[in-house]
Simulated scan of single mutants.
Amino acid sequence: MPNHVLVTGPTRSGKSEWAEALAAQSKQPVIYIATAIASPEDMEWLQRIQQHRARRPAAWELRDCPLELAALVRDLPPNHCALVDSLGTWVANCLDQSQDQWQATVAELLASVQACAAQLILVAEEVGWGVVPASVSGRCFRDRLGALCQQLSPLMTEVYLVTAGFALPLHQWGIGLKPLRDQLDAQG
């Protein structure tokens, strides 16, 4: 199985830069999968996208994928490293899906990650550390992204929490909920 990595952290923590460094270290051709939708009316958003573009090596292949992430991940070529930045933006792009549609979308993504022949680096925002969002869409976003990261993490070889420019290897220091649940279930 290829090395799959989840990099998570708050805004401006360095998570994208950490993921980019991991991709560069892979010594494989890199496919950068951008989930953002560039809106010409939002200059601040365009500046953020430009900052990401300016950091990336010119040799990296760019694929824009605001919605159909599972299909793209499933079809990635072996002997490549793919960096998805970011899952939070992708979840936001899918907020109009019903709960049933969202569950099917997540199931398809999880299956694609498991079948992915490329090294995969996924970047995700940590959004659930603050107050409960006041809006229905804000709570939906927070809940969907948090649940998605919990479902993805057991499929990963490595999981990093990046904050204040430091990366913590959760896969080494943490105890996953799934192994703990399995252990408790086995005990009766």
Rank of each mutant, 00 (worst) to 15 (best):
R48S: 07
R74N: 13
A34N: 04
E20G: 01
S26M: 04
V30T: 10
H52T: 10
A24K: 01
R48A: 10
G14A: 04
L72P: 09
T35E: 14
P29L: 06
A38S: 14
A70M: 02
D64P: 00
S16F: 05
L76C: 07
A19M: 11
D42V: 12
H80D: 09
W18F: 11
A82L: 07
L76D: 09
H80E: 13
G14I: 04
G14Y: 02
G14N: 06
K27L: 03
P40L: 08
L62C: 04
A70P: 03
I33Q: 12
Q47D: 13
T11A: 15
A24D: 01
P66A: 14
I31S: 10
A21E: 06
A24I: 00
M43D: 15
C65I: 09
C81T: 11
V73E: 10
E61R: 11
P66F: 10
H80V: 08
R74W: 12
A82M: 08
E41Y: 03
A24W: 00
I33M: 05
S26I: 03
E61P: 07
N79P: 04
K27M: 01
Q51D: 09
C81Y: 12
A21Y: 00
H80W: 13
E68I: 00
R12V: 05
S13R: 13
A71H: 10
D42S: 13
L72C: 15
V73C: 10
V84D: 07
D75V: 05
E41I: 09
P77E: 14
A24Y: 00
Q47W: 06
E17W: 08
V84L: 06
V84I: 11
E61C: 10
M43E: 15
I49E: 04
C81G: 04
D64L: 05
L62I: 04
Q47I: 07
A54M: 01
D42F: 09
E20Y: 00
S13V: 15
A58R: 11
A21C: 00
A38Q: 14
L62Q: 05
R53T: 00
L76Y: 13
L83H: 07
S39Y: 08
